[in-house]
Amino acid sequence: MLTSTPSLVTLENAGVARAGRWLVRGVDLSVRPGEIVTLIGPNGSGKSTTARMALGILAPDEGRAERRNGLRVGYVPQKVSVDWTLPLTVDRFMRLTARLSQSDIDATLESTGITHLRLAEVRTLSGGEFQRAMLARAMARKPDLLVLDEPVQGVDFQGQIALYELIQKLKDDLDYGILMISHDLHVVMAATDQVICLNGHVCCQGSPSAVAESSAYRQLFGSKGVDALAVYHHDHDHTHLPDGRVRHADGTITDHCHPDDGHHHHGDGHTQGEKAGDA
């Protein structure tokens, strides 16, 4: 049904070898507009390598990688370090690879909740603030394809949810495709259209529920992975926004959550975060 839409990026049986060893092999994937495809897998399973092939940073040693002509990409790499010698404000960082109007920049900073950091130097940001700035920068380019390598690393659990919701919302509004790498199975399972489990090759792929059923997935992630599907689908009546305010189920926004509020995200945030870390 979706196959009629031309895909933004396609990998066909793609693999990369270094020093006589296959980092990853036989990957088939495609990302279409309005779709979130997530790569999961243990460390060294070839997730980042696969993303780099999709981006064209690495040429596949076998198979093919194709991107739509004139594809506009926004990329959030896993590790970016800006050291002291570089005087770089968030505002200048936003313009790194694109000419943007000030109103576009302001709007994106607003939606990622870091308006107040516009003139701050990038190297002074905390891990979570920096991830938001990276995400804002990639989105401000108005890309066709957003590639996110661990986009919520260093962000506390509540912030993670907020960022994932933001990614989802922007995807719905702007209809771009997202290729994401994530460790956090809970969120992956809740917010993804297609999941690809990697472990040097594709172990299983499909919709989150189909993948969770597969034996390969259970083998890779054990029972924690199976729990992941259930855990996210609990009821919560309020959400902590990126800027620290709280949105309640009825849509009102307050500075703090009330003691009588229902299910609380802080508390289980820690346990869930740890679980995700183990996985």
Binding site: L55, Y75, P77, L86, F93, L96, T97, V147
Partner: peptide, 9 residues
């Protein structure tokens, strides 16, 4: 600032 980011974009 970041080579891969620049290359990807």
């Amino acid at each position: 600032v970041n080579r891969e980011l620049a290359e990807a974009e």
